[in-house]
């Protein structure tokens, strides 16, 4: 019998992880052990995040050149329980039933991973987005390695907060204009209030762009 941690999020929902999350957390699938990266001889690799952000993830793919099917997938992550579980689940989804084609793989959304995990606590949803980004980075790497430059995906602006329609590009510009906090971003973009649920992602982007442009994150 395991004793479950009874943690609730700010909406009173249980912070308990589902059995599937726990299974992937305690027995993560398809990990590439540190030190075995070169020997694995991957066809493509994608790395996203940074330890300063609290999440960093690397995904390696072996891809069949003819069929563009994902033959194998390995990963490493520095991140919380949800990040570990969702990357583990993503790796399973990519290679189950003989493997997805990269076209199919590109259709995987964070919501699909969360559904397979049986749900994640609200506050933890941002953790599952990173796996999706690592996958895209890895597939872009594949396109680069196979001279398919026209297929490389350039991400457009993404709406971060539905209420105010604030996008990641908006936040980038706000940071370039000196915004350091969510409050600053609201002021710069002249939006009355960013939805509370979007605040963590906005904060993460503020830090990301601060580091990108100023070399270090502002507190």
């Amino acid at each position: 019998m395991t004793q479950e941690a009874k943690i609730k999020d700010d909406k009173g929902n249980s912070w308990l992880y589902t059995d599937t999350v726990k299974e992937h957390f305690f027995n993560p699938k398809n990990i590439l052990k540190a030190g075995e990266e070169d020997a694995y001889k991957a066809d493509a690799m994608g790395r996203v995040g940074s330890p300063a952000c609290g999440d960093e993830m690397v995904l390696w793919l072996k891809i069949d050149k003819e069929t563009e099917k994902i033959l194998d997938c390995k990963w490493q992550t520095f991140g919380c329980g949800s990040a570990i579980a969702s990357t583990s689940m993503l790796s399973v989804m990519l290679i189950e039933n003989d493997g997805m084609t990269i076209t199919q793989a590109l259709k995987i959304k964070p919501q699909d991973i969360i559904a397979r995990l049986g749900g994640l606590p609200n506050r933890k949803i941002h953790c599952s987005v990173l796996g999706d980004k690592a996958l895209h980075a890895a597939i872009n790497d594949w396109f680069r390695n196979t001279d398919q430059h026209d297929r490389i995906m350039v991400a457009g602006a993404k709406v971060i907060d539905q209420d105010s329609n604030v996008t990641d590009k908006d936040i980038e510009e706000a940071v370039l204009e000196g915004a350091q906090t969510v409050g600053d971003v609201e002021k710069k973009l002249k939006v009355s209030k960013i939805n509370e649920d979007s605040v963590p992602e906005v904060e993460q982007l503020i830090r990301f762009y601060s580091e990108k442009y100023y070399g270090e994150s502002v507190i």
Binding site: P51, M57, F208
Partner: peptide, 19 residues
């Protein structure tokens, strides 16, 4: 299972290509 290899000297940790 971690891709991160930090230095114990804080100054040596540059933040790599991010997102």
């Amino acid at each position: 299972m971690s891709p991160v290899k930090l230095s114990t000297n804080k100054k040596n940790n540059t933040h790599p290509k991010y997102l």
